[in-house]
């Protein structure tokens, strides 16, 4: 059984490249197309928190180190 986790993505740190979105195995991340940060970029956010398994794929691929990953204590 995979771990349950959640991620925090820095809104101002994200550049909206979308690499985390395409590499998320459970497709729980998405780009926020209805809002932008102060650089006018659509930032990534945790769309479906229930699906996150704390695999760290998003945090390792994120070029700008904008993602912090947490794992649920069993």
């Amino acid at each position: 059984m995979p771990f349950k986790g959640y991620v925090e993505i820095s809104v101002e740190g994200c550049k909206g490249c979308g690499l985390c979105v395409i590499h998320c195995p459970t497709e729980c991340l998405a780009l926020n197309m209805s809002d932008t940060n102060s650089y006018s970029l659509h930032y990534a956010y945790l769309k479906e928190p229930d699906k996150c398994i704390a695999c760290q794929n998003c945090s390792i691929i994120c070029p700008d180190a904008a993602i912090t990953v947490y794992k649920k204590i069993a």
């Binding site: 550049k15 760290q56 390792i60 070029p63 180190a65 904008a66 993602i67 912090t68 990953v69």
Partner: peptide, 20 residues
């Protein structure tokens, strides 16, 4: 929840000028 990954402290908390 426990922290398992965060931005390294040795990388300064600054927005990099590189393209997305």
């Amino acid at each position: 929840y426990e922290l398992i990954y965060k931005r390294p402290k040795t990388l300064l908390d600054k927005r990099m000028h590189y393209c997305p």
